[in-house]
Design a protein around this nucleic acid. Sequence first.
DNA 1: CATGGTACCTGACTAAAGTCAGATAATCCG
DNA 2: CGGATTATCTGACTTTAGTCAGGTACCATG
Lengths: 283, 283
Amino acid sequence: MRRFNRAVTVEVGALDSSFLGRGRPLGAARVLTAIGPEGRDVAAIRETLKLDSGLMSRLLRGLEAEGLLTVARDPDDGRRRIARLTPAGAAEVAQYDALSNDRAARLLAAHPRPEALLAAMDLIATALGRDRIEITHIDPEAPAARHCLQNYYAELAQRFETGFDPATSLDPEAAALRPPLGRFLVAMSDGLPVGAVALKGNGTETGELKRLWVAPAARGLGLARRLMAEAQAAARELGMTRLRLDTNRALTEAIALYRRDGWTEIPAFNTEPYAHHWFEKSL
Amino acid sequence: MRRFNRAVTVEVGALDSSFLGRGRPLGAARVLTAIGPEGRDVAAIRETLKLDSGLMSRLLRGLEAEGLLTVARDPDDGRRRIARLTPAGAAEVAQYDALSNDRAARLLAAHPRPEALLAAMDLIATALGRDRIEITHIDPEAPAARHCLQNYYAELAQRFETGFDPATSLDPEAAALRPPLGRFLVAMSDGLPVGAVALKGNGTETGELKRLWVAPAARGLGLARRLMAEAQAAARELGMTRLRLDTNRALTEAIALYRRDGWTEIPAFNTEPYAHHWFEKSL
DNA sequence: CATGGTACCTGACTAAAGTCAGATAATCCG
DNA sequence: CGGATTATCTGACTTTAGTCAGGTACCATG
């Protein structure tokens, strides 16, 4: 553990000094790379970098003078300001990205088992960021949602004895998973989706939960339970009084979770070909 | 990968600010913890922390004024100076260690699979520190040597179809593995032994290699080959002209390595009960 | 429309980190 | 021995990071 700390500190330090090689103090470089291609709220940048407003303001002024960004007032709220990269600024950010990608690529290329290395990093990033996992509502067709569903399907294909083909399963319409009918919830860890659940509604007081998934690196952190709790809260908000779900007998942990969390098994309420158990819970 | 970087940077930053909580600037804290219980060469500290000599000198003076360390001249070389912790300094270091151990313990305790997390950290620490793996000669009864041998035996017990009991194997006397007869080589990565090989001598021109082991997290980095090369160089230094070794048929990678590196199979030259193959190489 | 709160800016400051050019004493090497 | 080299120290700097106390413009609310 201490060895890990040391190795990582050295690596972070080396990355920082390679950043310094571009002739700009680290604080300024961090602000620049925190803006993102779309531009970003000054307050949001300050929040993620934990900077004092005075310092932030000065750094922005410096970068503005270099011609790397522009700061404009937010049309929705005149107090807020939005920083946007100029083409020159975007080019600088690309240079910084290249520096860190190079290091990463070299590290991976030199390693005999790059997949193992990536899996290890994933595990550690999730472990370190576990208190920062946030559950948010997104559109069921957003990239993060697609990412979760793809991983979910891939895992089902592996775990079901019959395999899994999404085309033959009952696939809810996207409209049933977005307001005002339903919701799509994802758990995000540092910008990466690590879990999801879909709440399907049809305008009645009975909703349905579908597509509960947690990334392998984030399992055992109680994330599935948190997702379920958030989904139930969302269902209540939408005026639902009862939730149902179906599941496959291969998903034993999920079934155990449902039982523990007060779901009761009921007869089949749909014709889902992959389902063996059906559950219900009143809110 | 970027996510890993961010998570780790945040963690390192958090650890740093918890260090600041002890009312001493980070630079001074780093110097203090870099000294180690035995005292350390000022130049060596400067090297690992990459500090300017002026800065280093001032930090030492400050810590000395606090009564946390003493600086004395090196008896072997009057230009060099050796920093040693006073009891008060050792207590401070213990406090810093406690801070980082607490964080580590909390992280591990909160994780569902602490072993997996540790293995992942080990893998990453080794991957990041691979250019810093150093091969040194140590005493065959030093703690690092014991550590390697224990892991080596444990692995043999698992891989040999008959199991492995060191008591029934031909165990070289420690004297045959230390100068002037032989050598014991370990590969150290940031203070942790990650590989070893023993060179057994009996005063003649024929030596024997034994106990070649590489830690799982460090496999595939070509470390076994480096260890073999260093051992051969050490054998030449000791005036040997021929090396022999025996091995078990379960150790297929090792056998492949010997063949690739110019060893030739020969008839049994000893009665090692666990051996199936015997090799020889002239230097 | 006054009031309190928010987001940002500015100026004045401090602490920490790092740089640079000698100075000094010890060692190495021919 | 004498010149070159090395390890450390000292003093005089600069840069970066960060803090703090106002100040200005804007928003939300009764």
